[in-house]
Write a protein that binds this DNA or RNA. Sequence first.
DNA 1: GAGTTTGAAACT
DNA 2: CAGTTTCAAACTC
Length: 778
Amino acid sequence: MDTPERNQIGTPISKFEDSPVFNYINSLSPIKPVKSTHITHTFNSLNFTSPPSVFTSPHVTYARESRFLRRHCSPESSKPVSSESGHEQNTSVPISDTVQASGPPVSPPESSGQGISIGEVTVDPTAESSELAIELPRTLKYDCGSPDGDQVPVDITQVDAVPVMSGTSKSLVQFVLETSMEGHQSFESRTGLPTTCQVEQTKEEIGCDWENLISDAADLLAFDSPDNIVVQKPRDQNLVTFQTSFTSLVSEFAPDSVENIQKAQLLTQVASQEQREMEELAGQNGQVAEKNETDHTPQLLSGDMQNQQGGGLASEKMNDKAGHSIQFGCKLRGIRRRCLVFETGNAQKKKLEDDSNSCSSISSHSEEKVSSEVKPLVPVRPGSSPCILPGIGLHLNALAATTKDLAVVKHETVIAGKQLISMPCSSATFHSLSSERKSFKSLALSSIKTDVDPASSNQVTTSDASRASAFKAGDELNESSPKKKRRRLEHAGESEGCKRCNCKKSKCLKLYCECFAAGVYCVEPCSCQECFNKPIHEDTVLATRKQIESRNPLAFAPKVIRSSESNADIGEDSNKTPSSARHKRGCNCKKSNCLKKYCECYQGGVGCSINCRCEGCKNGFGRKDGSTPLNTEETEVEDEEIEISEKDGADKRAQNNEAYESEEQYPDPVVPITFSFQICRSTSVHLPFSIGKPPQSPLPPQRRFEKHFQVIPDDETPEILKNCSPISGVKTSSPNCKRISPPHNPFVSSPGRRSSRKLILRSIPAFPSLNEHAGDLQ
DNA sequence: GAGTTTGAAACT
DNA sequence: CAGTTTCAAACTC
């Protein structure tokens, strides 16, 4: 407030217009779209080469969230805003918003008010500067987002470096461009990916923005895969260099770049550290280094996505200490990486057949919806739905930023339960994120939770994560035959990944709507009518959300709470089932006997509890009366079988009965429960799916694999696995089983490691294996 | 694909 | 808080 014109290091922000970078950018192209594209791609390239840490930043999200922040940070934030207004804002007030996005949210200290004002004041809303402002932030989004840069005290030395770099900004930019081009241009040309492949300019501002992001992400992916294959080593050597260069470069691009710089530098350090770690690990596994490299890009991509939707996550990250931030970043990165790896692997795999798959879509996406654009990002199986969406506006994220101050969110770990929950969603940006992705998110969340607040960590349920699958940015036309599509998708095993509703009267603004309830926007697969649960109605959605939350603060909380938390919550429930997961409020089934998805408990893959008012409960996951399936695994198996033969209702019932029988075999839940619980946790395949479809039709082979997984003896495993459990679940349904990482990975191996650190490491594991898988594919 | 059932959500 | 209505998913045919 006092010195809005100055950044933290005292550099007059207004100077930015005079800065070489500014001129350089302006000179890039008079045409806004072109300019934007150019810059974006440049950054993409950079990102590609740059270390992950630099890009990990969730604050990218702020571009979108910042708006919420500003709009809602006031006490009256709850005031419903017309959907149109939100829309208008996108086009009419982008500058300040965008600027904010890159700056304010990042720095908790200054916090909302100041930071925002800075952004607004800083940028001179002149036509030219406006454009620049818009474009730059956008570009920055992809790259400089640094999650905790702000939280962590900025190192003075680092800060000092900024000014120096600024002097050489132009050359630096060129250098970076050249360098990046060196590394990736070849690929570009090779794949024929047009550097200018961008969304049609005619699209609405917001759409363009998102689309750009998406396309960029796609670019990244496209680049990533090939690059990893071709230029991995070389790049690695120059990694540090790139980081630095990139960081400085980034810093040059915006008035608030100072903050970015700081963050970027911080991230750079983090990245270095991470790299070091990875290298160390590489000692054990030669592929680690490679992974590390490979992961960088993915991270970027995921980072973008997450940034857009992962406000909560970002906040969470910020919540941690600096040291933890690093770890955090790693973990997150790892997760993302995994996603990327997954994608990368896929890309690699598909490279031969269509490198351009992603590219083509990108280049040709002008007419396509976002979904199509993103397609390439996700390994789309034939028949599977490409609902992958880079996070575009998960309203949960927005809400997180909106409802409460960033600071609040950051420090609200416990309450964050809800927000945390949203995080998965956010993270789960990709709509059709295959289960894998979801698992990633879950994992990320889990990790985060673990670090932040183990106690509350459990709040976030896997199911939520899965539920929180992302959404699609663009508004999609209702599908002609929703059911068909739904079924198709379900059969494809992605149903859980993609929430789709069929609302007709609720406008998708009530909890009736699965999408809305899950905190995600409706997407293409949805066949809803008069849907307001779309990014363009962001404000409406948020307002509604708020309203509902005001009525019931837990309305958007996970319906199913897991393990420890559930225990705590259900403390009085002596009938806890081994699964130690419970429906928060319990069901009220009267006729379904809790044997159908009508029952939320059953649907969530959890047993009924005391909280349930169900009648004639026969919930296979655990009955209200306390009889629970001790042998969870067996139960799962049964479930699997049941699912497989789901068509045959009779069979299904019979199987359930069997499960019961097995349960009955262990009347006493106490002793065996623990064990089974752990196993269940580690295995817990169905939980992840739980929300959407409890027992998902499993992939037998994987199942087996997972089971094998479960057996792994690890005292500490339970906790981690709990968190990771979603992964397994995801794995099961994941289209790319191959990428599913086995438990036995270098990082995971040492049970001796404890605490968060250990958790982190464990979280990462999946990636390595993924890479290995990728390597196998190659 | 249409119609029915079901139970959560919303309303009174 | 209980009863009723509304709603959309789950399910059936």
